[in-house]
Nucleic acid binder design. Structure first.
Lengths: 343, 343
DNA sequence: GCGGCGATTGGAAGCGCTTGCGTCGGCGTG
DNA sequence: CACGCCGACGCAAGCGCTTCCAATCGCCGC
C-alpha cells in the first residue's frame, strides 16, 4: 500500500508538505505542489480515509436516514443528496428504517453514534427530542427534509400551499364540488404533512366561499391501491360525486384515475384529478399535478449541512421552503355543464 | 469525547484489556469483561471508527454501486443488502451512477479506492476488467448482483429460465401465438439480461414446436410508458395479434395492460399478459408474473461478501442462482376459442 | 514438590495522517 | 544597511485504537 511517505520521498519533500500540498491547506510553493501532485499521481496514491479521519476528526461522510426506500420521494431525495455530496467529496451512508421495528433504535443508538458520520440528514422523520439531542451532544449537525423538527434546520415545501394551489387551479376552472383524498395521519411517519395538505384544500375552498364538505375528504395511505379504493368509495354515489379531486400524491392520484375509468367515468370530462409530486409516471397518465422537486430538496439539505459543518453554527436553524409548481396536463378541465352532468 | 482510556480507568484495567473485552477477541476473564462492559455502558463509550479502522485496516463498511435509484429492483436489492449488513454491524455507503455521465469514473477512481470500504457490491453493472482489477489490486472483494461478471462471484436469477417459465405457463393454458416485449439491449446497462429473457421465450416456444415469430418480439426500455408504446404497436393489427405476451418486467407489463384497455381489449379474455418481477404494483393490476426476490438477492450478496471477507478467498468465484416463482393472478387465462377470437 | 502450560493482563509500538511550532531565507521598510 | 515579517517547509507529537510480546499466576501431571 503506497503511503504518504512514499510520495514524500519521491517528491523530495517532507510528509507534512505532501499533506499540505494535497489537501490545499497551508502554504506550499506552486512548484512544490506540482511536484507532489505528480508524484502522487504516478504512485496512484490515495489518502487513507481512516488515518486522515483520526487525525482531523472528520469523516467526510454523512448519514442519511430514510423511513422507506421503495418510494419515489425518498429515492429522489437520496439521489439529489448523493449527487451533491459527491461533488463536495463526501460519501453517503444509508440507513433505512423500514426493516425490523427496532431498527430505528439500533440506527440511532449504535450506528449514528459510532463516529462514522459527520452529520445526518433525516428524511421525512419525526425525530424525538432525545434523538436530536444525542446527535447534537456529539457535535453532529442534523438537518431534516420534509416537515419541521424542533431546533433543527429543515428543507421542505409548504404543504398547505401545495394543496391550496391545486385546489385553486380546480376552482379557477369552475369546479366547486371538490374532494380531497389525502394521507392517513396514523399510517405514515411524516407527521404533519397529511394534515397540512388537507388544510390547504380547506383553506382554498373557504377563501372561495365554499365550505369543505367532510364527506368529500377521504383518508388513504400513499399508495396507488389505496387511492383507488378511496376513489371508488368517494365516487360511488353519483349524486354526491365531486366534479374534481385534489389528491395528496401522484401515486394515489393515478389510483384515482384508474378507479374512475373502471367506473366508466371519463377523466377529465366527468372528473378532474390533480395530484402532487410530479412523479415519473405522471406524464404517462396525463396527470395534472403540483410538482415538488425532491432531488432539489436533497441537494439543498446537503448545502445546509455543509454550511453548518464549515462555519461554527452561528445562525439559528433555518427553515428552507422550497418551490413547487403547478403542471397542467390532461387530467383537469372545466366541469361539464350542470344539466349535462346530471344526465 | 469519552475514549478507551476513560473506560480502562473506570474498570481498573488496561486499555488493551478493554479493547479485548469489547471486541471479543483474545481471552478475557468473564468477571473482567463484565466490569468493562459495565463501565463502557455507564460512560456511553463507543469505539472510534476511524481509530479502530486505522489500527485494524478494516472499515466495516461496504460500498454498493447502483446504476439507478428510482427503480423498484435496485431499491429492493439495496433494502435487502442494507438489512443484512446492519445485522453484521456493517455500514452501507451508496454510490449512484445515474448522475452525470462521468460519475462512473469518479466513483471508481476516487471514491471506491479511497480506502473507505472493505468491499463492494455492484448491482446490475457490467464492470470492465480494469474496474474489477483495480478493486482486486487493493484487496477489496467484489460481488455482483444480476448478470455474471468475469472472475467475480455473483448472485442472480436464471434469466432464460424466468421467461421460459412465463412462456410455458402461457403454453399450458393453450396459447400458441405468444409475443414478447423485452429489454432493449442498448438502452440498459444490465447487459445480457434482456437477451437472455428473449432466449427463454424462444426456447420455450421451440420446445413446444412453435417457431417464434420475429414480428412478435418488440424491444422496449424497462418503463411502463415504453411497454405501453410497444404494446400499442404489437397489438395494432388484429390479424397479427398474439393472444398472449410475455413481458420482461412488471412495469412494462402494466403498460401493456393499460394499452390493451385503451384499445378496447379485455385482459385476459382477449390478451393474456405475464410479467416478471412481482413488483409492488403487480397485485393491484392483477398481473400474473414470475416473481424474483431482489431483497433476497441483496441479502445473499452480502453473505457472499462476508464469506470472502472472513476466509482467505479459497474457493473460486461462485455464481449463486436464486429462485424465482410463477404467481398466477388474473391477467392470464385460456385463449378465446378460435372462431370467437376472430369475431 | 517442581517444571510447564495456558489463561490473563499490561506495556508499548505502531496504524498513516495532520498540524502546531520552529527554522531558514528573501524581501520590504525606516 | 539592519530589522522584522512572512512565505515555505521540516520535525515530531499526537489522533484513539489494536495487538504482539512479555510478565504473572494458578493449576495439572509426574
Amino acid at each position: 500500500m503506497v503511503g504518504i511517505d512514499d510520495v514524500a520521498r519521491r517528491a523530495g519533500v517532507s510528509t507534512a508538505t505532501v499533506s499540505r500540498a494535497l489537501s490545499g491547506r497551508g502554504h506550499v510553493a506552486t512548484a512544490t505542489r506540482e511536484r507532489v501532485e505528480e508524484a502522487a499521481a504516478e504512485l496512484g496514491y490515495v489518502v487513507s480515509a481512516s488515518a486522515s479521519s483520526l487525525a482531523t476528526g472528520r469523516m467526510r461522510n454523512i448519514g442519511v436516514v430514510v423511513p422507506f426506500l421503495n418510494r419515489w420521494f425518498y429515492t429522489s431525495v437520496l439521489e439529489g443528496a448523493q449527487r451533491r455530496l459527491m461533488q463536495y467529496g463526501y460519501d453517503l451512508t444509508l440507513y433505512n428504517l423500514s426493516g425490523s421495528s427496532n431498527e430505528r433504535s439500533t440506527v440511532f443508538e449504535t450506528f449514528l453514534l459510532r463516529q462514522r458520520v459527520d452529520a445526518v440528514i433525516a428524511v421525512s422523520l419525526e425525530l424525538s427530542a432525545e434523538e436530536v439531542d444525542s446527535l447534537h451532544a456529539l457535535g453532529k449537525p442534523l438537518v431534516g427534509v420534509g416537515g419541521p423538527i424542533r431546533g433543527v434546520p429543515t428543507v421542505s415545501i409548504d404543504d398547505v400551499g401545495v394543496t391550496r394551489l391545486a385546489t385553486e387551479h380546480l376552482l379557477s376552472l369552475g369546479h366547486t364540488v371538490i374532494g380531497h383524498i389525502g394521507g392517513d395521519v396514523d399510517a405514515e411517519m411524516s407527521f404533519h404533512m397529511p394534515t397540512n395538505r388537507r388544510l390547504g384544500w380547506e383553506d382554498a375552498l373557504r377563501d372561495a366561499g365554499v365550505e369543505p364538505r367532510p364527506e368529500l375528504y377521504s383518508p388513504a395511505v400513499f399508495t396507488m391501491q389505496s387511492g383507488y379504493v378511496a376513489a371508488k368509495q368517494m365516487l360511488g354515489d353519483p349524486r354526491l360525486r365531486p366534479t374534481a379531486v385534489v389528491v395528496a400524491s401522484d401515486e394515489m392520484a393515478i389510483g384515482v384515475i384508474l378507479a374512475a375509468r373502471d367506473m366508466g367515468l371519463d377523466v377529465p370530462r366527468d372528473l378532474s384529478v390533480v395530484g402532487i409530486d410530479d412523479h415519473e409516471l405522471a406524464p404517462f397518465f396525463g396527470l395534472t399535478t403540483v410538482a415538488q422537486f425532491p432531488e432539489q430538496q436533497g441537494e439543498r439539505a446537503v448545502e445546509l449541512l455543509m454550511r453548518e459543518l464549515d462555519q461554527s453554527r452561528d445562525d439559528e436553524p433555518a427553515n428552507l421552503q422550497l418551490p413547487f409548481e403547478l403542471i397542467v396536463r390532461s387530467s383537469t378541465s372545466r366541469p361539464r355543464p350542470e344539466r349535462e352532468q346530471r344526465g
